[in-house]
Design a protein around this nucleic acid. Structure first.
Lengths: 192, 192, 192, 192
DNA sequence: AATGAATGAGCCTTCATTCAT
DNA sequence: CATGAATGAAGGCTCATTCAT
């Protein structure tokens, strides 16, 4: 039918299957064979949907960005204060880390696996984290209304870095403690 | 004869060669063949020194822990204030990231590549980061002398997480900005 | 085109090549490389046909079972007496051992190489020998018509064990003498 | 000291260690490394005792021959009748197979692994089995006193082959049934 | 005697990708 | 659009043996 924009659901299915494997085992440690076996398709079929493993990796990261961001936003409430929302982000982080069994951030994990900073996957990671940092800055800027824009952005960066640190260390320690420490700190940091 | 210190046994040489490759390309992406070709030895020779690739990986992380920690300590001065030393740590971080061309932390990169949290390499990572966190806590406890021990430890954790966040995001952005932002923050955070 | 029966797929060809090597050199002593070199294919191609060496080993034993059993049956004649057929089996054994240059029984040889009794290859060996034992029992039961079923089966087992003993000792001695001794014995054993 | 014939006990120890491994895993499947690790010696030390793996294999088979034969003889009683002793051999066989967990005959297993019939190990196997066959013949000749020498030898060969068949099939089936069937048969075979 | 580093061919298996059908 | 055979380099690792110390 004309205007059929919806790509083949097989492609989507492949992204979903790969997503789970890439996340759990790592991008490099996951082979194409494992993916196609789980999908029940042939090698050639896979390569008719993706011209390379990297393209699948990109599709994974892009979808992940969308999904993860919507998870994050679902935990926020525009009717509440910026402070409250900033604190909620760490609630979300805690919930998520428990759910994902402390496998951490797909983007940060992939950052470690892809040394070439110019590679498309690295750009996707960059884009994702930039978006997150900006989201923090929006909220801190809204919180520190009396201050300059630069001030708000600096605070947003700090909360972003604290978030990133808590994220990776909870993965390392397999414990929510770093998240809780960070959250506790920002409660006083964002003085009422 | 004279001056022949013969410091580095073949084993040490292998660890050094592997260290560079593991760090630059990643642990998983580096094959034994590449290492032995660079070392100019046979496969079997390698396996007479290490019983597995993992053992080499462990030797790498252990040496890295020692070396990196001494780098860090070299930037500190016990005659100076805890505040000054805490700030210096971010100077060190900046210098190091520039030197290493923003390849980031070997331990954090390897954390991403090794999903099994019980594996020996993960324990090595855990040990390394725990040591770093405790070092931060020593300094913050010394700084916040008037406060409770728990207070000092909480602050140490926060600086540690900020450090980790700045570390990984400077790797991601290939830019020292996150480090400088974090450092700037702690200067006011550790009010004089 | 015409007459191009294309009976043997590549998989079958691989089984045939491997069969000769496994039989002549032993299963363990035969490497995949030798097989693919003879077949003129790449390593990966082999593993698209068989998921492991063991699977090839199983295909070998299964085909061998079919082929060998039909060899055996070709030497029998249902129009003749059971006694005559039982004697003929040892004629067949003699002919076969001469032809195969006294390399013996593929199943017995593989039994020695596979210590794990639960392994698929061991089960294949078990199945083959059980079939042979039952065949002996069919014939002895037919021969000893006046006797009980248990009697016939016992005699079948004895002839089977004699067959096995003659088989392996002719391999050991590289001489048909054990076969001839066994055959001579059963001629009187199966009194006319 | 003069006349010091006793070879180094280390050599004997190596033979003992290797014996267990060769028997349980097979000659080919057992590596030198496994042996020296268990013995706690270095590669070079091993090769100062044996110039090759094959020489160790020979030492194993030779010792095995001596030990096994004395086991067999221990079950016999020269004061008893030949018939009784022949029956006892199958008692011994049953006991032994149960003890060795049905790993079968070291010689027959090795026969399967060594294709070259001229090799020293094959000659050792040949020698062992020839000795066993002759022992059977001694006993049958003694039993069938009224018959010709050739008659007794033929019967001995038959019992030997039955023994061999029972031996290998009890290994295959992991069951003493073939041994018991054979024994039952010879009881009537050697009419009182 | 004893050591263990060194060899290099070999082990089985998987890799991402291509292409004729 | 789907198939799966084909590639060949690479994966980690073991083999029996030698030899300088």
């Amino acid at each position: 039918m004309a205007g059929e924009t919806k790509t083949s659901s097989k492609r989507d299915e492949l992204v979903d299957i790969a997503s789970a494997l890439f996340y759990e085992q790592g991008y490099g440690a996951t082979g194409i064979k494992q993916i196609i076996d789980l999908a029940g398709i042939a090698k050639g079929t896979f390569y008719s949907h993706f011209k390379s493993k990297e393209e699948l990796g990109l599709a994974w990261l892009r979808k992940r960005h969308t999904v993860w961001t919507s998870w994050l936003e679902a935990g926020l409430d525009s009717n509440k204060s910026a402070r409250s929302n900033l604190i909620s982000i760490f609630d979300f982080l805690e919930r998520w880390m428990l759910e994902c069994d402390f496998r951490g951030c797909a983007f940060l994990n992939t950052l470690a696996e892809v040394p070439d900073p110019e590679s498309p996957m690295r750009l996707e990671i960059l884009n994702h984290k930039r978006g997150l940092q900006e989201r923090f800055q929006e909220l801190t800027t809204a919180h520190f209304t009396g201050q300059s824009n630069a001030y708000g952005k600096q605070k947003g960066t700090i909360l972003f870095l604290l978030f990133e640190g808590a994220l990776i260390e909870s993965q390392n320690y397999r414990d929510a403690a770093p998240i809780l420490s960070a959250q506790k700190e920002i409660k006083t940091f964002l003085a009422t």
